[in-house]
């Protein structure tokens, strides 16, 4: 049944693409509302960032953006269908790294990294290690000492298996020469709940959680290159002698059939929003780090990331 359907869908697609696209120049784009699909449940980092973009989108383009959610398989379900969507620029999709590199490496994700067409990576959330504020651990070194003395006993909650959080925790184990137990949860929300409730020793999550939870959490170290402006007192892993820089990048992708000039125009819009003072304030207050990787720098960026994360993936036992 499904084979038949795939065939039918392919036939319909072929026909749809064969029809001449309506004349649309990039200057007039957009002339109506854009649909922005997020391949996750609402409430995560992708959603919050997209909502911040949505709030100023109209001011920059004169039209609205509509956010929809198509969760499934850690994003793979939506990404595997991205290229089936009409490439007129009016449907775009959130895209994440390292997800879109690790999932195809694992195999059977329904897409390859090269199938996807990111036009802009606009922000990044570094990994960070958290403990609840009433925890006995005041510094990362105390936690590392405890873990050295008690191999496997330190439990760290994170979002998903073979994910950015999981990768970060493994790198931390390697760099510090310790063994911790990673406990995967179905998202940032449930894993932070477990940390707050003292169900685990701590958590390997994104730095954004420190903003959302305020005083209830203690961030011991952050995996950014430099200290984050929002958290001047929190040291980086590198400062403390552990060479770990990582997290998740988020951007916007379009169907492969989208014309070059529309891709460029969308990339310009996202860059413009990235410079909007209101948007910048919201994002930084939220613990996000803005990055500005536009369409023309994309091939280089993706190649570099693929190389970095493939090395990490080997550590996770992915793609063997």
């Amino acid at each position: 049944m499904t084979i038949k359907c795939t065939f039918a869908a392919a036939a319909a697609m072929a026909l749809a693409t064969a029809l001449p696209a309506s004349a649309q120049t990039a200057d007039e784009f957009p002339s109506k509302a854009i649909t922005y699909i997020l391949p996750f449940d609402p409430g995560g980092e992708s959603d919050i960032a997209a909502r911040f973009q949505q709030a100023v989108w109209n001011a920059h383009t004169g039209h609205d953006v509509i956010i929809q959610y198509q969760p499934g398989a850690g994003g793979a379900q939506a990404w595997s269908q991205l290229n089936d969507i009409a490439g007129d620029g009016y449907t775009v999709m959130g895209i994440n790294l390292p997800h879109t590199i690790l999932q195809p490496l694992e195999g059977n994700a329904g897409y390859t990294t090269e199938d996807l067409t990111p036009i802009h990576y606009f922000h990044y959330t570094p990994n960070a290690i958290f403990v609840p504020s009433d925890s006995e651990f005041e510094t990362l070194q105390q936690l590392v000492d405890h873990a050295t003395a008690n191999p496997g006993m330190v439990t760290l909650a994170g979002s998903g298996s073979k994910s950015a959080n999981n990768l970060g925790q493994l790198e931390f184990d390697q760099a510090a020469g310790i063994t911790t137990t990673y406990v995967p949860f179905s998202g940032t929300g449930p894993s932070i709940t477990a940390v707050l409730g003292n169900q685990t020793t701590g958590g390997f999550n994104y730095a954004t959680s420190a903003m959302a939870q305020g005083d209830a959490l203690r961030m011991l170290a952050v995996a950014s290159e430099e200290r984050m402006p929002a958290f001047p007192d929190v040291p980086t892993f590198t400062e403390l002698g552990f060479e770990i820089v990582g997290g998740a990048y988020r951007g916007i992708a379009v169907p492969a059939s989208t014309p070059e000039d529309i891709r460029q125009r969308l990339s310009d819009i996202v860059s413009e929003i990235n410079a909007d003072p209101e948007f910048v304030t919201r994002m930084e207050e939220g613990g996000f780090v803005l990055t500005d990787i536009p369409y023309d720098e994309m091939p280089e960026f993706v190649a570099q990331m693929t190389e970095e994360y493939s090395a990490g993936a080997a550590a996770l036992g992915i793609g063997e």
């Binding site: 609402p42 409430g43 909502r51 959610y69 929300g189 707050l196 939870q213």
Partner: peptide, 14 residues
């Protein structure tokens, strides 16, 4: 807590 109980809660939180 800033932890949404359900998906609609999460959207309202956003």
């Amino acid at each position: 807590l800033g932890i949404p109980g359900t998906p609609p809660d999460a959207i309202i939180l956003g």
